[in-house]
Design a protein around this nucleic acid. Sequence first.
RNA 1: GCGGUCAUAGCUCAGUUGGUUAGAGCACAAGAUUGUGAAUCUUGGGGUCGCGGGUUCGAGUCCCGUUGGCCGCCCCA
Length: 437
Amino acid sequence: MATFQTLPGFREFYPDALARRNHVFRLWRQTATTFGFNEYDAPVLEPLELYKTKSGDEIEAQLFSFTDKGGREVALRPEMTPTVCRLVGEKANALKRPIKWFSIAEFYRYERMQKGRGRCFFQFNADIFGEPGIEAESELIALLVQCLCAFGLSEQDFYVRLSDRNLWFYYLEALGLDDARTRAMLSAVDKFEKSGDEAFNSYSEQFGPLDAALKEKVLAFLRVKSLPALEAILSSVPGEKLAARLTDWRRLLGNLEAMGLARFVEVDLAVVRGLAYYTGFVFEAFDRKGELRALAGGGRYDNLVGKLGYGELPAVGFAIGDMTFALLLEQRGLMPTFVQAPDIYAVIGGAQERLAAFGDIHALRAAGFKVDYPMKEVAFGKQFKAASESGAKLALIYGGDELAKGVVKIRDLTNRSEQEIPRDQVLATVKDFYSQH
RNA sequence: GCGGUCAUAGCUCAGUUGGUUAGAGCACAAGAUUGUGAAUCUUGGGGUCGCGGGUUCGAGUCCCGUUGGCCGCCCCA
């Protein structure tokens, strides 16, 4: 007998798992809507070139890509950013600013599986286009925080690390590094948290031994964890760009504090995010215990829309992945268990009674009640047990005795009380019951 | 792509130095019980022991390979 396995890294959602997934999506969608973001969707399959243009040729190794029957090189989308840039870029002149959009979509990456990472996963993506100032960052970081708080998570559970690639560029420039050295140094900064001093090996190989004074200045900057610390370290470094950038920082943190979100946000220049396309503030959300992969990540990417061939358009965005997020909710006991319970379970005597019951069952369903009944003729005892286990609050009993009298027995399964009601009163009685329960 | 580790029923797991027809609990289903939800009892379905090869009189058990899961590395848009 042939057996078919699920493709490695792919997920199947049985009803209980789908209920949890829907719960997460529902709250994300609701939260984004309260922030005034509009939902969009787009194709799962895109031209391979879209991702090569954005991320370089090496990206293909990480993609589910193939040649379609028309000879087109295509790939399953590994992320939403290039797609949303295209959508916005195509109609940029016609869209009201600021453009605040979000999506909840599935993505595919040809990677090795690990905890919190599969070959397919869902992301909540939110982006703001057309706003060059820190107002966009304020809005998105606030949305990110609320997307997690909506589930009952607090500043005890997660935090957002805020950093700034511009600050690093200006700082390293002030220290005398050219563009190539700056990029190599940022790569080292990105790795430093995990690898320690080894992170600088690649830099040393390219540009010779690392000057001890320079390294110390980089490490000092990397260790900045607060605005006062940042102000202190920059007070001895001249430069108009740094001063202006510091003003942006003060305004951004001021906005977040005014929203009551300061307790979620930590200045942390050790975060630079490897992606070359980020151009300013970058941020990542982590669980406080540090046990899980990043919950979310994002930042400003002012050049990407232009790079894809459209007019220049400033942009900021972030994404939350569903897998790590679900792990966190489960760890904290914040993932509810869902039961698909009917409102009413019909208990049916025999073939005649069944036909009589069908009329009421359909009328109740048409009125919006969830109604279930046994498909086969089974003993009353079994039916009451099934009614109880179904989670329904009410049972409607269609027995020979009742129908002979022109009534239906209605049983409150929560307190086991019963009453007989005329058959034409069933819908009204059920409505009355559920208006009070 | 690399390394470690694991794989027996839908789930959690037993399975002796290699030895008869591979077991238990839970879950599912039927019955005891054709008018009231618990509990109990009885019974049943469900396994090519992940797959393939090797050693052996004999392999769930030992060996090799392979696939898949988990953990770590690389990567993480």
